[in-house]
Design a protein around this nucleic acid. Sequence first.
DNA 1: GCGCCGAGTTGATCCTGATCAAGGCGGCCA
DNA 2: TGGCCGCCTTGATCAGGATCAACTCGGCGC
Lengths: 253, 253
Amino acid sequence: MQSKQPAGRLPEPPSPMADDGDASRFCGTCAFSSACVAAGYQKPELAELHCLVEHVGPFHAGEHIFRTGDPFRAIFAVRGGTVKTRMSDREGREQVLGFYLPGEVIGLNAIYPEHFPCDAVALDTSYFCRFSFPAMSALAARIPALQKHLFRLLSKELGSASLLAGDHSADERVAAFLMELSGRYAARGFSANRFHLSMSRGDIANYLRLAAETVSRVLTRFRSQGLIQIEGRELELLDPPGLRGLGQGLLPE
Amino acid sequence: MQSKQPAGRLPEPPSPMADDGDASRFCGTCAFSSACVAAGYQKPELAELHCLVEHVGPFHAGEHIFRTGDPFRAIFAVRGGTVKTRMSDREGREQVLGFYLPGEVIGLNAIYPEHFPCDAVALDTSYFCRFSFPAMSALAARIPALQKHLFRLLSKELGSASLLAGDHSADERVAAFLMELSGRYAARGFSANRFHLSMSRGDIANYLRLAAETVSRVLTRFRSQGLIQIEGRELELLDPPGLRGLGQGLLPE
DNA sequence: GCGCCGAGTTGATCCTGATCAAGGCGGCCA
DNA sequence: TGGCCGCCTTGATCAGGATCAACTCGGCGC
């Protein structure tokens, strides 16, 4: 039921892995290529990004990409797999900060403290592009589009952090969580209505500040209401508008 | 009891207003001057910052610095006074995102959407430095320290956003809130143990995702336990270590 | 085969904090 | 001066979700 990465089980999506694309080893769906392409930059600047990117992985489920306290030297773009970030307070209680899908970037919250304030743990077998941050900053000073892209990445994450801030019911939270995942998969070219939940119910609950039992109950109810089909971690959204309605309390005007 | 800005009431702090300092009209405690000074940049670069800064205000309590949906053109550093930012969902429920003190910067979460995703409302009579963001980006590309400073500002706000994320008791939240305010006042040169709460109990409650009644009860209890002295909005921390202990659940390892 | 273990589900009970309600206090304006 | 209104406080009740507990299921190692 919760086989990890059941290669043949995922139905429509070509498997959540950003293809390597071109011969130059640069990811087609890279989190940064758009910064160059969209601004009309071509080969030369891409080549400069190549110089400072380093492909790392695979990391297997449960392995750390970085740990709390590690000195901050680079940010990571997810090429394939899924990651959770988490903090632990001094009583050892874990707090999941976020989940990251292919094409998304982790480590931005380490710029200010200059060491990672959280752990990053692979939920799947995962691959990354590692970008030296000092090198990237220097490049950003020469490529306005890259600088702008970095500002936007940071600002975007600020916005999503405040979504979780509101006090909302368990139903609202779970519905909004599913719709948000759906949107992010869709934005990366995967199926919006059918995907695999790489994280456990416990992780979802922790992220949404609910108990695992509550998440389980809500999902069961959503299924009985015909909003979703779910079996283990395989999910299908049957009524996206309905879910959106439930979750809209978390979304801005 | 809740006279707004009772000029003579505040005891130690020289009044929470960043002094204008030098003859060139640049704030001594400006959120950005440190970027130049710390990196050894002097007059020339400061002069360039002058070109793109604009002093605005006063805004009186309740007035908007910007509104949800306004096109994003600039960020604002608080020179004096206090600001709250808030979002409203479509049912009209308000969600307070944060409070900003002199020397802090608002508007960073508007970079990505390119329009302000929230309102900014003055709680006090307030003054600001307005920085054109396009101009600032251009300058940042030429002044590495400024670019770094912007990255750090964004990253820092990311970190503080995730503090609120955890599920914590009312006591923990209120204690951590008071200690955080204390630390921020201290960082700006004001008294750490004695300050004025510019925001209503309702605003505090909304920010902490509690009911106003709960905040009131917790403060009353803290007072009866000898942790604080509070009368209206005048606050004194009597036992900072005790408060820190209560609130440490919200703080990272 | 057996037993262990972790993830997930479901049921019963409890508790924190929300909600409802009433009243005090001070500021402000007619 | 009186009356209104917001903010704050305090008390009584309620409810959503946490917690405790029991059970299923599938994987895995011996």
